[in-house]
């Protein structure tokens, strides 16, 4: 119970609630000698009640004016969900269609398709914490892990602005994993990498990424948006001379992810429908039990205060008509 008021100084008005102690609020009728009136317990009780009513009415009004409310509460609950970091590729090629052309009326670009489907995905994951990171030549921190779905949607919507430079996936992954530092380990931790290309990862970064993935217990999903005619992640080299990370970065990145030792799943999407399928899969799989914090928004209590005060006023007014008429 965290109670608070909007204007604390208004609480000084609570002193007014002492007034009914000084004055009964009733008409006085002259009596020759008050000691002659016999003591009446019932009367004393009624007067006491009426004074209390009046005090409560004054207090109710003052509290209402001060703006009494219950502050935002958080309650820990156990549900199903995950901590998900969306790692989005902002390289220029994302602005082309799946056919590798500039988008025209009928085909949407890979970025648009990803944006549309990710928006749906986020809407379906109500209890998850979702963060957003992007990368091109360098990683961009966009949105911390948050339960605020509006914020995540705003970050996804902002990818509608033109894409940036090249693909530097290792730095992006590093940034995505850093989101989980200082986060409790509960439910599953997922990095959802959405990209349309790959790049060779240098040896030092490989070592670091291996360590970080293991330490943070992160599961990796890679949705590879394959452009028609370009090499895929599952393609084997036709010529042994092409069997290196420089010539086939997608295959080698895939191999590296497989060797990470943490759960990893790759999807190769060649059309918006395949992308939709991949997202539906993740939606179905990643529902481990986890602790999450439910926010109970701030509750306004001034209406209650005013209602109580109004009711008591009605009682006081009613009682007025029962006063002894002499």
């Amino acid at each position: 119970m965290n109670w608070a008021v909007n204007t604390p100084w208004a609480l000084t008005g609570l002193l007014l609630a002492l007034l009914p102690l000084l004055n009964s609020g009733m008409r006085t009728s002259p009596a020759p000698w008050t000691a002659l009136i016999p003591a009446d317990t019932l009367s004393a009780f009624v007067v006491c009640c009426l004074r209390l009513c009046a005090m409560a009415a004054i207090a109710g009004l003052v509290l209402g004016i001060a703006g009494l409310h219950r502050t935002e509460q958080s309650r820990e609950r156990i549900g199903h969900g995950a901590h998900i970091v969306l790692l989005l590729d902002r390289s220029s090629s994302m602005d082309n269609t799946f056919a590798g052309r500039a988008p025209n009326g009928s085909d949407e670009s890979k970025a648009t398709a990803a944006r549309r489907l990710l928006t749906e995905f986020v809407n379906q994951r109500q209890t998850d914490l979702i963060g957003v990171a992007e990368y091109s030549t360098s990683p961009l921190f966009v949105m911390p892990l948050t339960e605020n779905k509006n914020a995540v949607q705003a970050a996804i919507a902002a990818t509608a602005t033109p894409a940036l430079g090249f693909t530097h996936v290792s730095k992006g992954l590093g940034m995505a994993i850093s989101f989980f530092e200082q986060q409790p380990v509960t439910g599953s931790r997922i990095v959802l990498l959405v990209s349309d290309g790959a790049a060779a990862i240098d040896h030092d970064s490989e070592l670091k990424l291996r360590e970080w993935f293991r330490k943070q217990q992160v599961r990796l999903y890679w949705i590879f948006l394959r452009t028609a005619g370009s090499p895929g992640i599952f393609d084997q080299p036709e010529d042994s001379r092409d069997d290196n990370a420089g010539a086939m970065p997608e295959l080698y990145l895939h191999k590296f992810f497989q060797g990470l030792g943490s759960p990893y799943q790759a999807y190769e999407a060649e059309s918006p429908d395949a992308l939709k399928q991949a997202i539906a899969d993740i939606n179905r799989l990643e529902n481990l039990p986890m602790h999450y914090v439910e926010r109970i928004p701030r509750q306004d209590l001034s209406t209650t205060c005013y209602s109580v005060a109004a009711l008591l006023l009605l009682v006081l007014l009613g009682v007025k008509f029962f006063e002894v008429k002499r």
């Binding site: 957003v132 966009v142 949105m143 911390p144 509006n150 914020a151 970050a155 919507a157 602005t161 033109p162």
Partner: peptide, 23 residues
């Protein structure tokens, strides 16, 4: 480049604050 579209400051204070801090 735009990192995120305008968000209401009171409901998304922590998110905006963290994002600015990470620039």
């Amino acid at each position: 480049t735009l990192l995120f579209e305008p968000l209401e400051v009171c409901s998304a204070y922590t998110e905006i604050d963290t994002a600015i801090g990470k620039v």
